[in-house]
Design a binder for these strands. Structure first.
Ligand code: MN
Ligand code: MN
Ligand code: ZN
Ligand code: ZN
Lengths: 131, 131
DNA sequence: AATAGATTTATACTTATTCTAAATTGAAAT
DNA sequence: ATTTCAATTTAGAATAAGTATAAATCTATT
């Protein structure tokens, strides 16, 4: 499971995710592929996203919406979602290691990782609100 | 939006969630209603869960699985999911207030709340693993 | 009892995603 | 160069969770 086989389709999907600034959904990726002149089957886009995720070239994000989003940043970080416009921002402030330790003690689980989705209002939406 | 109208159906759904120990899904709730001799329409169960959530009598949890889970504990807490058996545990250790402040500074968002899903391995599954 | 509003029901629909079976591709072996 | 075979892609059917709709039923209030 170490070799990575990047077909034309997988490379194109990876390019779209890598060049995106906004954590696109599978449907977003599909649309952008079409804009670039590709026409892959839906299944292929889903398969490619899964493949790239398994190879850890991208990450799949479950932010509580119906559709998964994809992220070419694979370094450890979290996300913040604007309750008004839905914009997804990066959260680089790391979770204190101590919190994880406390959770392990409290629950008896061996703790591996934490997925955090912060909800709030982005700067633009705050400005508009004060109209 | 202050009065609460608990119909037979809503009360029965609430009872199931309140008496559950395991953060049931809508389908779980449906099955337990049938076990108790009820036979409500699927739509009614979803409507009731939404109603109870809006009245803040229960909470809807999005833990990254396909189906939402429901929780009669409405006090502030988080969740931990076993990667092996799927068991969902409570996490009462609060996220440090300072982390939230740092995230607000970092992102420029007004931060409202954080939903955290911790992944790990529960005590039972750890025991079994050492077979 | 009549009225009106809220609720429930049965069913159709939507959305996101996975599955399937056939067709295609491409690398390795002849 | 041609054959071979596994991996991949394709198109479309299937699934899962949840929402929408319209008709039927409840529940106060007059
Ligand atoms: Mn990100
Ligand atoms: Mn809980
Ligand atoms: Zn916003
Ligand atoms: Zn377990």
């Amino acid at each position: 499971m170490k070799t990575i086989n990047l077909t034309t389709q997988r490379q194109a999907v990876y390019d779209v995710v890598r060049e995106a600034e906004d954590h696109p959904t599978a449907a977003d990726v599909m649309n952008r592929l079409v804009e670039r002149g590709h026409s892959f089957a839906y299944g292929t886009v889903y398969n490619s996203l899964r493949y790239l995720t398994e190879k850890e070239m991208i990450r799949e994000l479950k932010l509580g919406e119906a559709a998964s989003r994809y992220d070419a940043r694979t370094d450890d970080h979290q996300h913040i979602v604007c309750e008004i416009c839905g914009k997804v921002g990066e959260v680089m402030t790391p979770m204190p290691e101590e919190w994880m330790t406390r959770v392990a003690e409290e629950t008896g689980y061996e703790v591996h990782e934490a997925h955090i989705v912060v909800e709030g209002v982005c700067a633009e939406c705050r400005t508009k609100r004060k109209k």
